[in-house]
Design a protein around this nucleic acid. Structure first.
Ligand SMILES: [Mn+2]
Ligand SMILES: [Mn+2]
Ligand SMILES: [Zn+2]
Ligand SMILES: [Zn+2]
Lengths: 146, 146
DNA sequence: ATCCAGTATTAGACATAATCTAATCACCGT
DNA sequence: ACGGTGATTAGATTATGTCTAATACTGGAT
C-alpha cells in the first residue's frame, strides 16, 4: 500500500484566503501558473494569461509574479542562463530535475536529502535557510536530437 | 592531524597543458578567474582583465568564458539572480552555499551527497549527468544589515 | 625573415529578459 | 458622484549576452 500525500491546495485557493486583492489580472496569472510540473517563464505565463484576458500587460505579469514570489506563494527559479521560471508548488517541499539542453524542469523527491549536512568548518557564519538539489541530465527529446 | 587535499593545479596551469592557443587576452581572463571561492560575473571578469590588459574587449571575455566552459575548465553557473557566474574550480567536485540577499557564493563539500538518489519512478527518461546542491542562507554581512 | 592560412580579437549592432516611470484606471467607502 | 488608494498600463530604459563582419595576430612553411 502506497502512502499518498493529499493533493495540495491550488495556488488560487491559497490566494483566496490571503488578504490580497484578487483582481481579474491576478486571477489570470494564478490560473496560468497552476498545475503539476509547471515551471513557466514569465513570457509563457503572459501568453497563457492573455488567452483568457487579452488586454493583460507584460508589466502586470512581471509585477504579479514578483509579488507572488515575495509572498512565498510561488518559487522563482533562476533558469541557468535562460529566463527565470515560476513554480506554483511552493507548499510541498521538493527538488528538481533539469534538462541541460532545453531547460525543462520536473519535480522530484530524491532520497537522502535529509542526510545533507554542511560541515561546521564550511558554514562561514551563514544563517542557513534551506537547501536546493538539482539533478542535471538530458531529457528524452534532447537525447534523441543529439 | 587534518587530512588535506593537495592544492589543485591553477586554471592557468591546466590551460598551458592544453592544445589551446594561449594569447595575452586568454591569459588575462584566466588570471582574472583564478583563486579560491571565486565566482565572478562576466562583467567582473572583464573589469579585472582590463586592469592588466586595458584593450581587451567585452566580446573576447564572453568568447573566452564560453570556450573555457565548453572545455570543462570552468563551470558556468546560472546565478539565481541575473548574471551567470564563472567558477574556475572545475577539477575538484564541490557544491555551493549562497547568500539569498547578496548572491555571494562559497565552495562547500557537504556530507551525504553520495546518498542522493532519484527514485526510478521520477527519472522521466532523463540521462543523468550530475547533481548540484546549493545551501541557501544569509551571509554574516547581510544578516547584520537586516 | 617573409608569407600565408587559419584563428583570435574587436567595435558595435542586435536580441532578450526584466525593470522603471509616469499616466490612467478600478474599486471602495463616503 | 467624489476622492483616495492601489492596480494596471504602454513604452522607455537597463542589464545581460550574442552576433557580424572587418581587422589583427599566430604559428608553420618556405
Ligand atoms: Mn517544482
Ligand atoms: Mn565553486
Ligand atoms: Zn531537453
Ligand atoms: Zn549576503
Amino acid at each position: 500500500m502506497e502512502r499518498r500525500t493529499p493533493a495540495p491546495e491550488s495556488l488560487l485557493g491559497r490566494l483566496r484566503r490571503r488578504d490580497w486583492t484578487l483582481t481579474a489580472q491576478r486571477r489570470a496569472v494564478a490560473e496560468a501558473l497552476d498545475g503539476a510540473h509547471v515551471h513557466l517563464t514569465a513570457d509563457a505565463v503572459h501568453r497563457r494569461a492573455a488567452a483568457r484576458l487579452p488586454e493583460i500587460s507584460r508589466a502586470t505579469v512581471y509585477n504579479v509574479l514578483r509579488e507572488l514570489a515575495a509572498l512565498g506563494e510561488v518559487r522563482e527559479m533562476g533558469g541557468e542562463g535562460r529566463a527565470k521560471r515560476y513554480d506554483p508548488n511552493a507548499v510541498e517541499p521538493h527538488h528538481h530535475l533539469r534538462c541541460e539542453r532545453c531547460g525543462a524542469l520536473r519535480d522530484v523527491h530524491p532520497h537522502g536529502t535529509n542526510r545533507l549536512r554542511l560541515p561546521p568548518g564550511e558554514r562561514y557564519g551563514f544563517a542557513l535557510r534551506g537547501v536546493d538539489v538539482v539533478f542535471r541530465g538530458l531529457c528524452p527529446d534532447c537525447a534523441r536530437a543529439g
